[in-house]
Simulated scan of single mutants.
Amino acid sequence: MLVDDSIALKYLSGENIDKISNHWVFQNIEKGKHLFEVPDDAKRDEVNKIMISIKKILSDFIPLNEDIYSALYPHWKSIIEDMNVLLLVGCPDPYDAMVREYGGKEYVIFDLIRFCDYSEQGFNIDMLVRQLITHETAHLCLHMKYPIPTSDDFLEQLKYITFDEGFAHLLSFKDNLQEFDFSTMIKEHYNQSFIKLQEAMKENDWQKQRILLNECNSGSYWDKFASISGKLFLVSNLEKIEEIYNGGIDNFIAYMGL
């Protein structure tokens, strides 16, 4: 992995905030917006500790659900060797981890202040980091086979997000997926997410479409209707997950009954 911690180091050394806020990442968190949150100087020591921990996990990375992950992405080890990782501060909540494209390359981005927030809430940071790295590297591996759409077609983008985020959310949810009972989760969340996705796919107003593309994979976890629909559909079809993945996006949407 190619790790760039230059923004985090500027923050840790107390450099002028303008040297951080002008970075390309903050122009690309949401399309057409500059999003930057001034990092808290009081968190420097904690940020430094978390950065050291993340670097170690990156160097020794093993994905959650390695058996399923390896079956879907057999070349994942070679893919992540060239993976670009940015460790920084300044992303507003809820942008803790994401993949963004810039200059023809994809970057996995981790905001260390957001990880400090999780630490204060009592989360196991090592496990959380492993979950997030599993999630983001799943995106990179999937994008190698199914590239991100370059058109502005609403339906194409919504279908792609459902497929892409469904796999990433599933694989990073917890280890040993086959041993977890998802029945209550499916009962409480699948239908409402599926219905919202179904309704979204019928939307013709371009302004509402832009809002839906943001809402379908952002905000509160269970409100991410595209991601949750994809994830819980896959949970119900773990025995066929390779077939579904290799069948591609349109077949995936058809399997879902959309």
Score class of each variant (00 low, 15 high):
F163M: 05
D164T: 02
D164Q: 05
E165Q: 08
E165P: 05
G166I: 05
G166S: 04
A168I: 08
A168K: 07
H169W: 09
H169T: 06
L170G: 10
L170H: 01
L170A: 12
L170N: 10
L171V: 08
L171I: 11
S172T: 05
S172M: 09
F173S: 12
F173Y: 15
F173T: 09
F173L: 11
F173G: 04
K174R: 15
D175V: 02
D175W: 06
D175I: 02
N176M: 11
N176R: 14
N176K: 13
N176E: 15
L177Y: 12
L177A: 11
L177T: 09
L177K: 08
Q178W: 05
Q178I: 06
E179H: 08
E179Q: 13
F180R: 02
F180M: 03
F180H: 06
F180A: 01
F180P: 01
D181A: 12
D181H: 12
D181P: 13
F182R: 05
F182Y: 12
S183H: 10
S183V: 07
S183G: 06
S183L: 09
T184I: 11
T184F: 10
T184G: 06
T184E: 14
T184R: 13
I186V: 15
I186N: 08
I186G: 07
I186L: 12
K187C: 02
K187R: 15
E188D: 13
E188H: 07
E188A: 06
H189S: 03
H189G: 00
H189N: 11
Y190A: 01
Y190D: 02
N191G: 04
Q192K: 12
Q192D: 03
Q192F: 01
Q192Y: 01
Q192S: 07
S193K: 01
F194V: 01
F194G: 00
I195C: 07
I195T: 12
I195D: 13
I195K: 10
